[in-house]
Amino acid sequence: MATTEAVPVERRRSLLRPVVFALTLTTVLALLFGVPWWSLVLSGNAWPVGVQIGGTVVFAGAAVAFPVLMMLGHGRRHLDGASRIADTTLGVVWQLFVWAVAGDVLRLGLLSGGVADPLRSRIVAAFTFVLAAGLLLWGYAEAMRIPRVRRVEVRIPRLGAGLDGLKVVMLTDTHYGPIDRARWSKGVTEVVNTLDADIVAHTGDIADGTVAQRTAQSAPLGDVRARYARVYVTGNHEYYGEAEGWLQRMGDLGWEALHNRHLVVERGGDRLVVAGVDDRTAAGTGLQGHRADHATALAGADPDLPVLLLAHQPKQVDDAVTHGIDLQLSGHTHGGQMWPFHYLVRLDQPVVQGLTRHGARTQLYTSRGTGFWGPPFRIFAPSEITELTLRTA
């Protein structure tokens, strides 16, 4: 009897899912595009009718086109032109939304000060537009520049004296994508090679798209130099495209893919285990042998040796603590990428950026990312190439 009743219940749930999704999407789009439309075009601005009609057409057209372009660009077809337009639209409307909301606070202040419409609403509209436009221009320049080097010292009590000063250079979230950044990629490699790294690590999200689409952009990774090892683990975006293809591509470029495995680096008579696990989303993709498996990654490693672990997402640190990892390197968060998005990132991840301690032994370094995803803007979240110097206690 219970089984018979469960079938229609599950059927009703499956029918409700697309309805709930459609309502959620409509609500989000209405707010995202509607709030700045009201602030810039309508409210109490008293713009000429032609301006109001033109502004309404622009916002309404963008709101309708945006989800379609996102599906064409980031769906199965991977149309780069659609991605570029959709991603840029997302960045622009996000900043307009943020500063339109902030403008409403200003509106209240002006109202209490006795400033009447249309002047009050026009001041708010100017505030919203000027701040959003200025930050978008600056954010675009930040996204497109070669990242600055961020230098961090990490003290690891179990690290042997022979490994004191070992230099690990970290790349992550390069996100080679619809905007051709082959020259940028070459510039990143040139900077890395000036750092005289012992180990270079890439903690995933190499690209958005297939290996064939991003061959030219990823090619400079083959020129990266490291004294002992170049190591890589998958991020969640590899599993949106072709994870096996990117593992093969990195192997062809001379990198060690730490696909739930480890290697040992030795210097001055002391050794360091360098391990890697798949992204936490890998298990849900159905790919055979893909999942975050710390036990397999550390199988055969001497438990008395310190362990440097590559794991794409900061939230994988709980498993790192369980397995006695000394230092985990992660990316994924982009430091929020576009303020104030980092508040939303913090709801999903334990850390947004920087060096943090978890448990008695484990430390976690979370990079803001080397590239960017989607909107070609970085606002109050600069990209980085990270130079980590490991020190004994």
Rank of each mutant, 00 (worst) to 15 (best):
Q217F: 03
V211G: 04
R148K: 11
I156A: 04
H175S: 02
A143W: 05
G91N: 00
V115G: 11
D104I: 12
W99F: 14
V192M: 05
D208M: 12
I179G: 09
A143P: 00
Q217L: 07
P178F: 13
T203A: 13
I206N: 11
D173R: 13
E190L: 10
A182R: 11
Y140H: 06
F97V: 09
R120L: 14
A141Q: 10
L131S: 12
E142W: 00
D196V: 03
T215H: 02
D164A: 09
L171V: 03
L159D: 09
S218F: 15
D208T: 08
R148L: 05
G113S: 14
K186V: 05
D180T: 10
V105N: 09
L106V: 13
G222W: 13
V224M: 05
G114Y: 11
R151E: 10
R183T: 14
A143Q: 02
I206G: 08
V115R: 11
T89D: 01
A141L: 10
T128Q: 06
V191K: 03
Q213G: 04
D223R: 15
A216W: 06
V211Q: 06
G162Q: 06
L166K: 10
A219E: 15
E153K: 05
A133S: 12
R122P: 14
G165E: 02
L135I: 00
L131P: 06
V200Q: 05
G109R: 10
D180F: 04
P147M: 07
R148I: 03
W184Y: 13
G134V: 06
F97K: 08
G162C: 05
V93L: 02
V149G: 02
G103V: 06
K186F: 03
I206R: 11
T172Q: 10
V192L: 09
R150M: 13
F97R: 06
V130A: 09
L171W: 03
V98P: 00
D208K: 12
V191Y: 04
W94Y: 12
N193M: 01
P147S: 12
F97H: 10
D180M: 09
Q217K: 07
L90E: 02
D104M: 15
T89W: 05
Y176S: 06
T88M: 01
G113F: 14
R84G: 04
Q95R: 09
S112L: 14
S218K: 13
L119V: 14
R155S: 04
R225V: 11
L131F: 07
I85S: 00
T203F: 05
E142R: 00
G204C: 07
T88I: 00
G103F: 11
F97G: 09
A82K: 00
A212S: 15
G109V: 11
I199R: 01
L108G: 14
W184H: 14
T89E: 04
D173W: 15
V192C: 14
A125D: 06
M170A: 12
